[in-house]
Amino acid sequence: MAAPVVATGLTLVVGSLLFAALGYDPLATLQAFFIAPLNSLNGLSEWLLKASPLILIACGLAVGFRANVWNIGAEGQLIVGAIAACGVGLFYPNPESPILLPLMVLAGACGGMAWAAIPAFLRARMNTNEILVTLMLTYIATLLLSWLVHGPWRDPAGFNYPQTALLSAAAMFEPFDYAYRLNASVFITVVAVFLMWLFTDRSFLGYKMSVSGAAPLAARYAGFRESSAVWIGLLAGGAAAGVAGMAEVAGPLGQLSPQISPGYGFAAIIVAFIGRLNAFGIVLGGLLMSLLFLGGEAVQMNLGLSAALTRIFQGILLFFLLAADFFIFYRLRRIPEHA
């Protein structure tokens, strides 16, 4: 557990030097960055709202990453999940039905899984590289979304702008309080974290997947099939990303437009690794990433720091975190020269 502490300490030191060098009071800046965003109920609500999809997707991805199944196309699976969920929300015959929202969650999960099933099939059957296939399918998903909102699903009352009609109230998560944006979709994330912990730490299947990640040959000798690890890894990531997409559409967005994700699918990869592919680590990682976003905006608003500077600061933190990890797991040693 030393790595996060060391990394945070180093970041604070280097960050302070950076802010001081540019003429900002380091203490005030750090306070605005890490404390100010969270000192109101609204701030806390925004913090969880932004962290929730990151944690949810990272949990799903980590299942695959532990088995060396590299799904980096969660962004595309999120988009397809959002499309499927929004399709149900828009075209279900009874827009007031109480089962509409659960159906949309299901549709989101199925959409994400369907998109992830393509690389899973190709990898399991034809041994294609899932890194390339998942990434490329992200672009296809973006274009599919663009076609839908420019074409068949365009809001007929929307002045031809590329967006769908707004979802009905029954098709949206109701906020806990209308003064804030946080809604019940955060519970889905809580359940997902728990399920991921059960699977990775308490189930035999999860153990088998970890083995095939750590030692593929040993896993094969033990009779664990590689293809099932591929399928489970990709489908878990796809389902999580699809549900996250559904929660965005049925939460803060309320409709589809050509771009619906602020890069959650990619940021979640970082979150998964900050959390060391462990359920509770991922929760902390997601909260940290989310705070970095909010803090970056807060210092821009309150102190007038440029957006680029806040991004540098975020980069420093992530850099130290991963570097500290590296030096904990590896030791630098001088190798005597042989003639």
């Binding site: 609204n42 925004e46 932004k50 944006r181 965005e248 803060p252 967005l253 437009s257 771009q259 619906i260 994700s261 602020p262 976003f293 909010l294 905006e297 807060a298 821009q300 608003m301 007038g304 957006a307």
Partner: peptide, 23 residues
């Protein structure tokens, strides 16, 4: 004047507008 740039996505924009109004 308080200026904040590079806000494109509606999810982020809603938070920023709310924050600006609340402050």
């Amino acid at each position: 004047l308080t200026v904040i740039d590079n806000i494109f996505m509606p999810q982020d924009a809603e938070r920023v507008f709310r924050e600006l109004a609340a402050s």
